[in-house]
């Protein structure tokens, strides 16, 4: 399966996901601001060139991140961690990727995108005997624009809306807009941020939550964010976000955690599907 994981990293880095391609092209068609159109045109040209030449679309090839959705009875579970780590080492040379794993105290770059707790692997278990590996390398510029707000429950949905919009305003052009905003509400601090990251990256663009009141909140946040006029690269325009995705968990009566994760336009994601017979597919 190592070959397929390397292939999934290569495709994530060099071929922008189809949903995001369409969302950016639609945004270019609708955009009325000339400066914004110049920026969107360069982005479209860029991902076209990247795909054609099999080149990383952005020189920040990200922190190698994997979300694994695995059945309890998946027979190859013991091999996954080593396979992913080895695939990251190989992809660093073969794609190639920028070495992006630095020791926080010694400032030393490991050179192969591996190190303590990285590649980062997030595991989730469910019924079944297959596994889905979400390959989601995440850029540093957009990750810097993450936020955790431990709100007072009394501020309610209004307080959540205000905090999200102020957060997008303060982020300005720094996370390389047009962005996809993931909002996680409830749970604890860590769960709010995990839900936000999953909402931002794993869900298609555009998409709406299956529960009506959450979907309506997404619509409202999307409309408000694009009224800010920050625009592509923070240079003004109608397109500040491509979408806003919200996920929630039940909360403790005394807390209202709000996690916000920002994904840049370079929404890099692929999936590796592995069944119980060892059949592997990259999608």
């Amino acid at each position: 399966m190592i070959d397929e994981i390397v292939e999934a990293i290569r495709r994530a880095e060099t071929e922008l996901s189809e949903d995001t391609v369409k969302a950016l092209k639609d945004a270019y068609e609708k955009e009325t601001n000339e400066m914004a159109r110049t920026q969107l045109k360069a982005i479209i040209e860029n991902f076209t060139v990247a795909k054609k030449g099999s080149l990383p679309m952005c020189q920040d090839t990200g922190l190698q991140t994997f979300f694994i959705d695995m059945g309890y009875d998946f027979p190859y579970r013991a091999e996954l961690k080593n396979a992913i780590t080895e695939a990251v080492r190989r992809a660093t040379k073969e794609v190639p990727l920028r070495p992006n794993a630095v020791h926080p105290f010694l400032h030393k770059n490991s050179g192969d995108n591996t190190g303590r707790f990285v590649p980062y692997i997030h595991w989730e278990l469910r019924e079944g005997d297959d596994a889905v590996i979400h390959v989601i390398p995440k850029g540093g510029g957009s990750e810097n624009m993450s936020g955790l707000y431990m709100l007072s429950p009394g501020v309610g949905i209004k307080g959540i809306k205000k905090t999200v919009i102020e957060h997008i305003f303060r982020s300005g052009g720094k996370p390389c807009p047009p962005t996809i905003i993931g909002v996680g509400i409830g749970g604890g601090a860590d769960l709010a941020l995990t839900l936000a990251k999953k909402a931002a990256i794993l869900r298609p663009v555009p998409s709406r939550h299956e529960e009506k009141f959450v979907a309506e909140l997404e619509d409202e946040l999307y409309e408000m964010a694009n009224k800010l006029g920050i625009g592509p690269m923070g240079m003004g325009g109608d397109t500040t976000v491509l979408d806003v995705h919200v996920e929630y968990a039940h909360r403790h009566p005394a807390t209202l955690p709000l996690g916000i994760v920002t994904q840049c336009w370079a929404n890099r994601k692929r999936k590796v599907l592995i069944d119980s017979n060892g059949h592997v597919e990259v999608v």
Partner: peptide, 13 residues
């Protein structure tokens, strides 16, 4: 001057 963020492949070309 601003060059569009993330456009690494276009730049390399």
């Amino acid at each position: 001057t601003a060059y569009t963020g993330g456009c690494g492949a276009l730049a390399a070309e």
